[in-house]
Amino acid sequence: MTVPLLEVRKLSLQFRTFDGVYQALDRVDLDVAAGDTVGIVGETGCGKSVLAKSVLGLLPSPPAHYPGGEIRWRGANILGAPESRLREVRGLQVAMVFQDPMTFLDPLYTVGDQVREVVRQHDRVRHARRGKAEIRRGVIELFARLGLRDAGRVYDMYPHQLSGGMRQRVLIAMALSGQPQLLIADEPTTALDVTVQGQILRLLQTLVEEMSLAIVLISHDLGVVTSICRRVVVMYAGTVVETAAASDLLTAPLHPYTRGLLSAVPRLADTAGTLRGIPGQIPNLLAPPAGCRFAPRCPTATSLCQRERPELRIIGGSAVACHHAGAA
């Protein structure tokens, strides 16, 4: 029986803005067990990034507001936990890697110093003390493990002297320096060249195997997510619409949105067929539709769909939030 690490239950998130209340997340569920590779896929406004940030309590509390739900880490609820508790979790148990390495690294300090700073933070929380030289050695070792050649030299380099791929490896090093059990990677390859992307994804896969790290990989790119994740969660407009094993999702998608996404992605291998976009646009989350949030754009929507928000139902090995799934 795998150990459940992260359990998000019916999480709802609202933002109080000038224009009204923005319903960013609506009763979202997510499960990650030890060694899992879970991908979260969705387009703009689906809430995948804020979901990740919520796990680590990174959203400032006004304007963010959680009207309901729980975030359980190893059984204990950390939603709304005090800073002291969150600091024990951040970096040491759950770490996050962000999208654009250039903006997340301070240009004025060497990358080695920045990672060392993080390590010292962790040590403080753990009430450990390590000398500068010892930390430096540890960081260089970590750099080497993450594929940074000539790690000793890289330690003393500044972010602008490194390539995009190297910077992302540094960010990953920062994230792993606390030896977390779960790594959340939010669009880690989006800002990178496609040839570098492959290397970073391979690195993440290796980390899962060698360090039995659980990974949540967030991306708008279905190809990226399904390449290394065993399970995929599809989000739309703040809700989870489908959760399935990657292979099942790709061969037999259950939710109309997933199907729409798959038919909209241009592929190398396809020699025939037109791309079909999804007509319409994402709903305004200041005033989301009452029933299923995808109903206005769904080719198979009925009046039931417009009235009632569908709950996630289990069909086979997947979960779908659609009134008509399984019947198609």
Binding site: R149, S163, G165, M166, V194, T195, Q197, G198, Q199, L201, R202, Q205, D221, L222, G223, V224, T226, S227, I228, A246, S247, L250, T251, L262, V265, R267, L268, A269
Partner: peptide, 25 residues
Amino acid sequence: QSLLAATLDPVPGAKLPAPEVVDGD
């Protein structure tokens, strides 16, 4: 060829490109 190998189609069994053997930077 390397560009092609690195382009990930959302199909089951899509393989990640082989690790770069050579120094890239």
